[in-house]
Amino acid sequence: MDRAAPRPVHFSPDAAPDAGLVTLLGDVARAVGDVPALLELARAAGAKAPLPGQGRTSTLWELLATVAAVDVAAARIFEPHFDALAILAQSGVDPVDGHGEGRGKEPGQSRGAWGVFAAEGPGARLEAKAGDAGILLSGSKPWCSLASKLDSAVITAHTVTGGRAAFAVDLRHPGVTCEEPAWVARGLREIPSGTVHFSQVPAVPLGGDNWYFSRPGFAWGGMGVAACWLGGAVGVARDYRDSLIAAAESGREPDQIALAALGETDRILTAAFQYLARTAARIDAEAGATAGTGTGGAKPATGPSEWSEALRVRGTAASAVERVLALVTSNRGPAPLAFDEQYAKRMADLALYVRQHHGMRDDAQLGKLTLKEGQPW
């Protein structure tokens, strides 16, 4: 069947038509699978996208969800670039000269494509030490998606004081070596994540020890990922709805089971997006109330409460995605998984991406915080 033209995902009550977003969607759809082209689109979009906590958080999350609805892997490229720009802004570092020099870029132009590498893994440790030339990074960092194709990254490393801190790093430095991972997954095949090795690589500090994890933006970034998950589920839901319409047009009306699955999908996604919109509005309201307090308009860290909200949002989104995947795949059967490339790719990409949520372990963390902090209910 013919694919409908990509369309935006809107969940905030004040969303308005955006011609630029429609154009971006067409560009993303044409660039699916072309990583360099998607990186360039992410860089261009990042120059115009709002930052979280500055009054237009819902617009940012709608943009991420919209890209994911077109192609989950594309969102997996856009989201870390946007997150890196937000981290740099929150730290007061200009992305143009995040490494102490601008390499001839025009004023206000972001220096290439960015990633965010904060994962830890057994047998891999990255350390930051002060030297005559400033902070130098040495060691290894796992789960560095697309490192060989990026220009720069925000990276966390262990410090001599026993904490972890964030740094801006030039990935084109000769001391950086990117492994080519043996990526056997069928999902996110164009975005493999491997280990990167650093040898005396200069780095620009972003905040002090543990600033990266204690800032409100850490929770905001985690919720931006949830927006991508939900956007991917929208793509799956649209595929399902379109398949029912196509079947009806060919004389095969959907039965009650198929309609019930579509109805449940609708209410699940609607509820999840309403929660996301409410959370975005709260973030902007609280951040706006602290503007001019020396925090750059961002709400000061108040302990785990901000992360509690992130855990709620991420858990709600992950559960919604898992249920939508189950509903749609059980009702559509094996044929589209076997013969519809776009649908099969979307299902595989989203199933892998949502595994960034840690399931019951994240719920256990939220339960612990609920005992300590109380609860909104």
Rank of each mutant, 00 (worst) to 15 (best):
Ala29Trp: 00
Gly33Thr: 13
Leu41Arg: 10
Leu41Asp: 03
Arg56Tyr: 00
Ser58Glu: 12
Glu62Tyr: 04
Ala73Gln: 15
Phe78Asp: 05
Leu85Lys: 01
Ala86His: 03
Leu88Gly: 06
Ser91Leu: 00
Gly92Tyr: 04
Pro107Glu: 10
Gly108Gln: 11
Gln109Gly: 10
Gly112Met: 11
Gly115Glu: 06
Phe117Asn: 08
Ala118Val: 14
Glu120Val: 14
Pro122Val: 09
Ala130Gly: 08
Ala133Cys: 02
Pro142Gln: 12
Trp143Val: 08
Cys144Lys: 02
Leu171Ala: 05
Arg186Cys: 11
Ser193Phe: 01
Gly194Gln: 01
Phe198Asp: 05
Phe198Gly: 03
Val204Phe: 01
Val204Met: 13
Leu206Thr: 04
Gly207Tyr: 03
Arg215Thr: 13
Gly222Ile: 02
Cys228Pro: 04
Gly235Cys: 06
Asp239Pro: 04
Asp239Val: 03
Arg241Gly: 06
Glu249Leu: 14
Pro254His: 08
Leu259Ala: 09
Ala261Ser: 13
Gly263Leu: 03
Ala271Asn: 11
Phe273Arg: 06
Gln274Cys: 12
Ala277His: 07
Asp284Val: 10
Ala289Cys: 05
Pro304Ser: 14
Leu311Ile: 09
Gly315Val: 05
Gly315Gln: 05
Thr329Phe: 00
Gly333Ile: 11
Leu337Ala: 13
Arg346Leu: 10
Arg361Leu: 11
